[in-house]
Write a protein that binds this DNA or RNA. Structure first.
Lengths: 215, 215
DNA sequence: CGATCGGTTGAGTCATCTCAACAGAGGTGG
DNA sequence: CCACCTCTGTTGAGATGACTCAACCGATCG
């Protein structure tokens, strides 16, 4: 028997993994800035955001912080395929999370289908991290912020986009300072590429130009 | 039946995946700077470095380049668990590579053990990329170069370490310019943390101090 | 022996960071 | 209802780390 299926990764189809967590997971509620799991904690569960939003972060000994990813309702996190978590996960605002122990995971449609779903989720994760490498290694500040806004708009629908994260979170995600993020947002707004309604809600006014700036 | 095994990831034990590729793979030879696979190529094979060294790279439309990872003899690459490659792979010097079509992959000790090996390899990959995020997002030039030398020394044994990559490759790996890399190397050498014998061979003179500088 | 390639070094510039002041929103208490 | 505080975000001025541009150097090759 071939093991090709261990790689083959049909991008279509329903997300069986999220289904399984919805069916069997336990609901947990986290307050703003509460830790969901710590860096180096044993990775024993998988998590699904029901409401609110989550960030994964890593700290250096002197306090410098890197945000790896943001997670929204409907998205899975905590999928690292190994014994320990590399990043901590924290709620960015009040959040409902479904938690399922990996040991309790089983699929209605059989394990093979579920394993395929796990691989698909892992792949999405790897793709995002790799795109992030390019952003952090080779893009300038304006390109980073444009990439960020573009991605958020794409992930959250095209109308008004709500940002659940603080400027500090954005800065630590993009490898910049809050001041640089703030200035860059102001400049993008002055160029009429985006329009902010209050601090944490925006609308893209020119998707093409924004994507172009994102490089 | 539980699917815990789909995550459980025993870090010990022989590398069955590399074993399988050694047993069944076809030998291919690549010249310096020759492409092994292109970005967006279908991911149909897995690869094992026999001799030489390999880099994975991604280009932006204006030519900016990011190197994701370097691979040495004994290491597997091309493991992206999906339909397409996110980065291209290129030989950095003359290299012998064992190539195995994923469809032909099968394990002497059964598929379960082999699948576990695939997950372990994927995890190693993810860990490295995540460490790289921290480096690119939050470390200064001297810390990046120190991290790089530290990692290379750890991966290649403790004596004299041969660097198969050019300064440009190092710069694109660390998100810096060749000039900054060069200056930083000179400074590290003047501080007696490392000692270079020629351009591409070095020895760590003070592992502790180097690791400390790497932050 | 000149050309080329990869690497180093120097001088000056620029993007981003640092430090600091300021501003609006929201909460609290008198 | 207002004074006050805190929290988050914006803006400005100046400092600086890394980049750009350019010269130079040694090794390799035809």
């Amino acid at each position: 028997m071939s093991l090709a299926h261990a790689f083959d990764n049909d991008p279509t189809g329903p997300d069986l993994l999220a289904e399984a967590v919805r069916r069997q997971g336990l609901r947990a509620v986290f307050a703003k800035n509460q830790e969901i799991y710590a860096q180096a904690d044993a990775a024993t569960c998988i998590y699904l955001v029901v409401s609110g939003a989550v960030r994964t972060v890593r700290l250096m000994s002197d306090g410098r912080r890197q945000v790896a990813e943001f997670y929204y309702p409907g998205e899975l996190f905590g999928l690292e395929p190994g014994p320990g978590h590399d990043f901590a996960a924290e709620a960015m605002c009040g959040a409902q999370i479904l938690v399922l122990r990996r040991a309790d995971l089983s699929g209605a449609d059989g394990d093979a289908a579920l394993e395929s779903a796990i691989r698909r989720a892992t792949r999405r994760e790897l793709e995002r991290v790799q795109a992030h490498l390019m952003l952090l290694g080779r893009k300038r500040a304006s390109e980073r912020v444009a990439s960020f806004l573009s991605e958020m708009a794409a992930r959250r629908g095209d109308g008004a986009v709500e940002l659940p994260m603080s400027r500090q979170d954005i800065a630590d995600y993009l490898g910049l300072t809050i001041e640089t993020v703030s200035r860059t947002l102001t400049r993008l707004q002055n160029s009429n590429l985006v329009e902010f309604k209050g601090w944490r809600q925006f609308r893209v006014r020119n998707h093409v130009a924004l994507a172009c700036l994102a490089a």
